[in-house]
Design a protein around this nucleic acid. Structure first.
Length: 443
RNA sequence: GGAGCUGUGGCAGAGCGGUUUAAUGCAUCGGUCUUGAAAACCGACGUGCCAGCAAUGGCACCGUGAGUUCGAAUCUCACCGGCUCCGCCA
């Protein structure tokens, strides 16, 4: 959701964003501006009518009180008093006002509904220093890293071969149980899976992030509030009760303080959670269908930060939240690169966005394992999440950020393939051994 | 799953069709008094939208939505949350 003032005063900025991001359209900006004007005019009319109606209502009340007094003195059905005639006149005027008021209110609420619908589709304006581009092919590589002892490998076995040989993943039975893009982690595979998650969680918690266990089945309001609905409706599993399975715990974490006014002294609020995530992957039919890359259900450690509305701090915290992920990959000695995600690929609400891609030998390239966004007040406006500075009256919309800490099973592709030994066994990364009972090799 | 109760401002709590611009108390903030503090007294004290350069003014909001009425916190209906008891089950 955008600042309505921005839309009224600088609609061209948002139109530009619509084109750069390929979200919404310039026409929708114009439509919003038009319908917003209709709404304001209708409200101005309705307010005046309502005030008039209230006045007449008050007079009706007084007269009725008077008439009651008179009736006590007179027998029923007796002569009509002056007051009674006046009352009839008032009631006729009041009825007329009522109809006019209803019409104005109707017009106002119609316009408001349309304005809201449009607003939910409009893009936030991206940081002008961020790359402009049409899709992921124009993302800009901005940093590359690998541990000297573990450079990117190639020409080695793929994780699909490895896990089948070692019995770490059962794809066939996964599909039997749950359909395409399903899998079952098993034995040491399951241990590795949990070890990776726990390691990442501990790392994030040690850096001052408060851990949460959150619902993964949330209300539609949370999905709209975080910006996933209505645009991404077809990517989510929705229940017969209208609730939705989240694609990331960013949704419940960012929504946690929704509809609240926080105190600035609580900021920045650093949160994290490990949760199961569900994605329909609609439109990705046939893409990455083999292996652990693109699945409907996975687990992820996610980080979320809420803080004051300040661009300098926003940038600093975006770096911080990205550094946390770098640190995890570095500890795992996985080669990675960081991309500045261009406007066409960043999505509706983002101001800045980094993707981190880890090296996956079987793809002979990097594969996206992390995604970190700076959203300024896009989500907090939708969530109605504000804060107040000490001693000040004005409540301000907070800024939000989020980033992946680690996601399983996708990152296992990099680990398994990078750490495979000549004989097909897998060396366990040192930092994970403590989480696997000291196990040094798998297989 | 069955039965009953309940939802009012930061909290407590009145109001149950028209002098409600929602009483009162607590909490909070400012002031008077005081060497200082406490007490006492005085005052302020919600959110959103609209008009206006502004001062300011108007409207809406009593869980949510619809309805009845000239007029709804108050009446009707639906939904949502909370509490209690019973049943079932981790």
């Amino acid at each position: 959701m955008l600042d309505p003032k921005l839309l009224r005063e600088q609609p061209d900025l948002v139109k530009r964003a619509a084109l750069d991001k390929r979200v919404g359209s310039p026409e929708k900006v114009d439509q919003w501006v038009a319908v917003d004007l209709v709404r304001r005019n209708a409200q101005a009319r309705a307010d005046v009518l309502r005030a008039e109606q209230g006045k007449i209502g008050g007079e009706v009340g007084k007269l009725k009180g008077k008439l009651k007094g008179q009736l006590k003195d007179q027998l029923e059905g007796q002569l009509k008093s002056e007051a009674s005639a006046e009352l009839d006149g008032l009631l006729i005027r009041a009825t007329d006002l009522k109809h006019q008021y209803e019409q104005a209110v109707h017009e106002q609420s119609e316009a408001e509904t349309t304005a809201k619908e449009l607003m939910l589709q409009l893009p936030a304006v991206p940081d002008p220093t961020w790359p402009i581009g049409k899709d992921d092919s124009e993302n800009v590589e901005y940093e590359k890293w690998h541990d000297p002892s573990r450079p990117p490998r190639s020409g080695v076995a793929s994780h699909v071969e490895l896990v089948e040989k070692l019995g770490l993943v059962d794809f066939h039975r996964g599909v039997k149980l749950a359909g395409s893009r399903s899998y079952v982690m098993r034995g040491q595979g399951a241990l590795l899976y949990n070890a990776v998650l726990k390691f990442a969680l501990d790392m994030i918690v040690s850096r001052g992030y408060e851990p949460y266990v959150v619902p993964v089945l949330v209300s539609e309001a949370c999905m709209i509030g975080t910006g996933y609905f209505p645009g991404g409706r077809d990517q989510a599993y929705i229940t017969q009760d209208g609730s939705a399975l989240v694609g990331t715990s960013e949704v419940p974490l960012a929504s946690f303080f929704g509809d609240e006014i926080l105190d600035e002294s609580q900021f920045p609020i650093r949160m994290c959670a490990v949760s199961t995530c569900f994605r329909r992957e609609a439109g990705a039919a046939g893409k990455d269908s083999a292996g652990l890359y693109r699945v409907h259900q996975f687990d992820k450690v996610e980080q979320v930060i809420l803080h004051k509305a300040d661009d300098v701090e926003h940038i600093a915290l975006h770096e911080e939240i990205t550094d946390n992920s770098r640190a995890i990959l570095q500890a795992l000695k996985l080669p990675y690169r960081v991309l500045k995600v261009c406007t066409g690929d960043m999505g509706q609400g983002k101001w800045r966005m980094y993707d981190i891609e880890s090296w996956m030998p079987s793809r002979n390239s990097y594969g996206e394992t992390h995604s970190g966004s700076a959203l300024r007040d896009f989500q907090s406006r939708r969530l109605n999440m504000r804060y107040r500075k000490a001693g000040e009256k004005q409540a301000i919309f907070a800024y939000t950020l989020n980033n992946t800490a680690i996601a399983c099973p996708r990152v296992l592709i990099s680990i398994l393939e990078q750490y495979q030994l000549e004989d097909g066994r897998i060396e366990v990364p040192e930092v994970l051994r403590a989480y696997m009972g000291g196990l040094e090799t798998i297989g």
